[in-house]
């Protein structure tokens, strides 16, 4: 690891100022991805801005919205009574991110800011049509994800909260990469009054994406069988030592059906 200056600002304004004033400064949330990256000397920040003292952690329900603070850990989301009541699929998703040690420190905001193409959370945020609140504005999920490791966040912009509309039905089904246990294919399905949304993580060449054909079919009939015969384009899938594009395309279908079954 290269050395850096460490700062732990006490206010959002100070954190934004520190990050905005220095392009080499980097924000530290849970650090579960960022610290390994630093250890491999793949990143050389001037200053690491620890977001841990900004009071961004917490879970609340307001009307039909579940609001999760950006620094809320996966473990907290998984164990939260509010989340388990409002969107149990989200608690289930959080309970299978990384491992127990990672879930104590990894945060929803960190995961979304990093937008790893095999992270779990982006699929939930996109499928649930969540909105991402930052210190500057509110961004809809459809606008937020812009390809792997790329988001709509401006330099220095800090996620503060994620607002989820509570769906009628939702579920997440994940096929884990055998080695890393990240999502090789993760499918989040959500049925709301506005319709059905299906978001896929892990599989695509360009990060999390919505599956229009699945959504159309499920809008007609929200059953696993509704997905029979609907292919996922193989040429848009990732391929690596753990699975071919064809395998991933197939798994997208299998996991989508399992998610729909679980959401009943």
């Amino acid at each position: 690891m290269y050395d850096f200056t460490y700062a732990k600002p006490a206010s959002l304004a100070d954190a934004a100022k520190a990050l905005g004033g220095d392009v080499e400064a980097k924000a530290l949330a849970g650090g579960m991805t960022f610290i390994p990256v630093l250890k491999q000397r793949l990143n050389k920040p001037s200053t690491v801005i620890d977001l841990g003292a900004l009071g961004l952690s917490g879970i609340k329900v307001e009307g039909n919205k579940l609001i999760i603070g950006a620094m809320t850990t996966h473990g907290t989301v998984a164990a939260s009574t509010e989340v388990n009541k409002a969107i149990p699929a989200l608690a289930d998703l959080a309970s299978n991110i990384g491992d127990r040690q990672v879930r104590y420190r990894g945060t929803i905001g960190g995961s979304l800011a990093n937008n790893d193409p095999s992270a779990c959370y982006p699929s939930a945020v996109l499928a649930l049509g969540a909105t991402i609140k930052t210190n500057e504005r509110t961004i809809s999920a459809d606008d937020y994800f812009q390809g792997m490791f790329t988001t709509a966040l401006n330099p220095g912009e800090i996620i503060t909260e994620v607002h989820f509309s509570i769906p009628e039905k939702a579920a997440y089904a994940k096929f884990a990469n055998p080695a890393s246990r990240y999502a090789m294919v993760g499918v989040f399905v959500a049925k709301t009054t506005a319709g059905v949304r299906v978001a896929i993580t892990g599989a695509g060449q360009n990060g999390v994406f919505r599956h229009a054909a699945f959504e159309a079919a499920l809008a007609k009939s929200f059953t696993p069988d509704a997905l029979n015969g609907i292919a996922t384009p193989v040429d848009e899938m990732n391929a690596d030592i753990h699975g071919s594009a064809a395998y991933r395309a197939h798994l997208v279908g299998v996991m989508a059906k399992r998610a729909v079954a679980a959401a009943q």
Binding site: I35, G52, Q101, V102, Y104, R105
Partner: peptide, 15 residues
């Protein structure tokens, strides 16, 4: 009270 991987946490974070 929480189990964490001490190789993935900065010492300064343990202040």
């Amino acid at each position: 009270g929480m189990s964490v991987k001490s190789c993935t946490m900065l010492a300064v974070q343990a202040e």
